[in-house]
């Protein structure tokens, strides 16, 4: 059964925009991390995310069929065209918040990539196979750091709890299924994200418990990123710097 190409495109943009925007955020740390070893490790994570972006958006551009490239999609769309979850566009905050955001994202990716490797779409399966190895390392590293900082000093614990309180309302959006997800699930391309929640909660719950952090009781979930309906104000500023050269000097080769 041929899947609706517009829906497939939306699904691919969600993948590629997540890694694009988070990769951009993580790259902001380069040269400013708490210690050289962490600076180097964060840059590796950002590089992996940029590489995944090239694959996801490259495929998205193919599916779109308008002769565009991954770069066109990254640098020439406006905020309302972006399909990343809000979590990824939130400002870095302190190092703890950045690492916690990373862990919350890595955990989701680690569950998702395992499923996408079995996608009925060969390209999706191939991208997921490559990304899954990177993601497996990311989640191990970010989980260790979250545990270390959560269960470190009084100050590091307090900062991590504050970061969790801030970030947790953005986690629910991962699992907010819609008709795009339904079409992907039906075509065997991707799982319905709502079906991943249990596995995600088990993984995240264990790490946060080891980190001696308390998950906020509120079930409220911000949303609007993965549908593009309502991003945060932060995305526009991120795009302003990211897209500036391409916008100011259109049509150039770099």
């Amino acid at each position: 059964m041929a899947v609706d190409q517009e829906k497939l495109l939306q699904f691919l943009l969600r993948q590629g925009d997540n890694t694009l925007i988070l990769g951009h955020r993580v790259s902001e740390w380069c040269g400013h991390s708490p210690i050289l070893e962490e600076d180097i490790a964060l840059a590796n994570t950002a590089l992996d995310l940029i590489g995944q972006t090239q694959m996801w958006l490259g495929y998205a551009a193919d599916v779109q069929g308008e002769g565009k490239s991954a770069d066109d999609l990254a640098f020439l769309r406006d905020a309302w065209d972006f399909r990343n979850v809000l979590l990824t566009e939130l400002p870095n905050g302190d190092f703890g918040r950045t690492l916690l955001r990373q862990f919350l994202f890595d955990a989701f990716q680690s569950v998702l990539m395992g499923r996408l490797m079995k996608s009925s779409d060969e390209t999706v399966a191939a991208i997921a196979a490559k990304a899954s190895k990177e993601v497996a390392y990311h989640v191990e590293r970010s989980a260790d750091t979250v545990v270390g900082l959560g269960d470190g000093t009084e100050e590091s614990h307090a900062r991590m709890q504050e970061a969790l309180n801030y970030l947790w309302p953005y986690v629910g959006e991962f699992f907010a299924s819609d008709d795009v997800d339904a079409a992907m699930a039906e075509a065997g391309i991707a799982p319905d994200p709502a079906s991943l929640r249990e596995e995600y909660d088990a993984l995240v719950g264990k790490v946060l418990a080891d980190a001696t952090l308390t998950i906020p009781a509120s079930k409220y979930a911000h949303k609007g990123g993965r549908t593009g309906y309502m991003h945060t104000e932060h995305l526009g500023h991120l795009l302003t710097s990211m897209q500036w050269l391409q916008r100011a000097y259109p049509g150039c080769e770099w």
Partner: peptide, 20 residues
């Protein structure tokens, strides 16, 4: 060489620093 709080983190840091 490099700095790390413990052996596990040293291995991870070594992966990130010395196998790029």
């Amino acid at each position: 060489s490099l700095h790390a709080p413990d052996a596990e983190m040293a291995i991870k840091n070594a992966r990130d620093v010395y196998t790029r």
